Amino acid sequence: MPRFSGKVALVTGSSNGIGRATAILLAREGAKVTITGRNAQRLEETKQEILRSGVPEDHVLSIIADLATESGQIELMNSTVDIFGRLDILVNNAGAAITDLEGHIGVGTNVSVFDKTMRINLRSVVTLTQKAKEHLIKTKGEIVNVSSIAGGQHAQPELIYYAMSKSALDQYTRSAAIDLIQHGVRVNSVSPGDIRTGIYETMGMNKESVENIYKFMESRKECCPIGTIAQPVDVANIIVFLADRKLSSYIIGQSIVADGGSSLVMEVQAHDWMELLKH
C-alpha cells in the first residue's frame, strides 16, 4: 500500500517548481492532493502531470486562488475538507521574490515591496496555518514550510525583504512546532539554495540570462560546491520525507538545508590553500 494512502495534502504554490514536484510525489505515493495557484494554465499542467502518473482524477482537487487573500484561503481550506473529508499534510510552499520596479535595493527598497513580500511569504503562512490547525489536530498531521538559505546569517541586500521574510518564517516554524506538538502536530521546514524553479524568470529575467547565471554558479566552488544546481524534485523529496511520520517522527521544528553546500563555504575555502601558500 502507498505510504500516504488515506492521507490528504494541501500544497500551496503548486502550479510550478517545488510545489508542483511535491504535489506530484505525494499523489504518486497515495495521497489525495489539493493543488493551488493563480495561473490557471500552469495549474492545469500540474494536474495533468499527476494524472499521467496513474493517479485517479478524484484524488486531485485543483483550485485557482490568491493565497494572499482571506477569501482565497477560506476557499482552499473549506473545499479541501468538504471534498476530501480531512487534512493531514499542509505544505506552505507559495512565496515570491519581489523586486523594486525602480531598481532600488537594500535599505532603499520601496516599502511597498516589503508589504507585498511579507503578505505572501509570511502572513499567508501564518493565517493558513491558523485555518488548518483544527483539522490537523484531528488527524495528528504534519506542516512543512518552504523557507530559504536567504534567511540565514549572511546578508542579502539585493533582496532584503525576501531574506527578512524567510528569517521570520524560520522563527515561526520553530515556535509553531513547540506550540503544536502538544496536540500531536509536527511542524518543520526545508531551506533550499538555488533551485531551477523559474523564480528568476518571474523576477523579469530572460531564460538565456538565467541559464548563464546557473552555469556560472555551477562552475564556481564558492557558489555551489556540489557543482550542479538542483531540480525541484530534489527539494520535494525532502518535503515528502518530513511529511512522512514513520521516517521523520522525531524531527520537530527543524529546517533542513538543501543547497549543495553553498551556505558552508567562505571565499577563501573555495580555493586551494596549499596553492595560495606558494605565493
Rank of each mutant, 00 (worst) to 15 (best):
M1V: 14
R3M: 12
F4I: 08
S5R: 10
V8Q: 04
T12Q: 01
T12Y: 10
S14C: 04
S15M: 01
N16P: 06
I18V: 05
R20T: 00
A21Q: 01
L25I: 10
L26H: 01
R28K: 15
R28H: 11
E29C: 06
V33W: 08
T34H: 07
T34G: 02
T34E: 05
G37A: 12
R38T: 13
N39T: 09
A40W: 13
Q41G: 15
L43N: 05
E44K: 07
T46M: 07
Q48H: 10
E49W: 02
I50R: 02
S53Y: 11
G54R: 07
P56Y: 00
L61K: 09
L61A: 04
S62C: 15
I63M: 06
I64R: 10
E70H: 11
S71M: 07
S71N: 13
S71T: 09
Q73V: 00
I74L: 14
I74R: 13
E75V: 10
E75L: 09
L76I: 11
M77F: 02
N78V: 10
D82T: 14
I83V: 15
F84R: 05
I89W: 08
V91L: 03
N93P: 04
N93M: 08
G95N: 02
A96M: 11
A97R: 07
T99W: 01
D100N: 05
G108V: 14
V113E: 01
D115R: 12
K116Y: 05
M118Q: 13
R119E: 14
R119F: 09
N121Q: 04
L122S: 10
S124F: 08
S124P: 13
L128R: 04
Q130M: 13
Q130H: 08
K131I: 11
K133G: 10
H135Y: 14
L136M: 02
T139V: 03
K140P: 06
S148V: 01
A150K: 01
A150T: 02
A155G: 02
P157K: 09
I160G: 01
S165A: 05
S167P: 06
Y172T: 14
T173D: 06
T173A: 06
A177L: 03
I181T: 10
G184D: 02
R186Y: 11
N188P: 09
S189E: 09
V190P: 05
V190R: 02
S191G: 13
P192Y: 04
I195E: 08
I195G: 08
Y200K: 08
Y200Q: 12
E201D: 14
E201M: 12
E201S: 13
E201V: 01
M203Y: 07
M205V: 01
N206M: 04
N212D: 11
I213H: 09
Y214L: 00
Y214R: 03
Y214N: 01
F216M: 15
E218D: 07
E222Q: 15
P225L: 07
I229S: 00
Q231I: 08
P232W: 02
V235D: 03
I238P: 05
L242P: 09
D244F: 02
R245S: 09
L247E: 11
G253H: 00
G253P: 10
I256N: 06
V257I: 13
A258Y: 07
L264N: 14
V265L: 05
E267D: 14
H271K: 14
H271Q: 14
E275Y: 11
L276K: 13
L276P: 00
L277V: 12
L277Q: 15
L277H: 05
K278H: 10
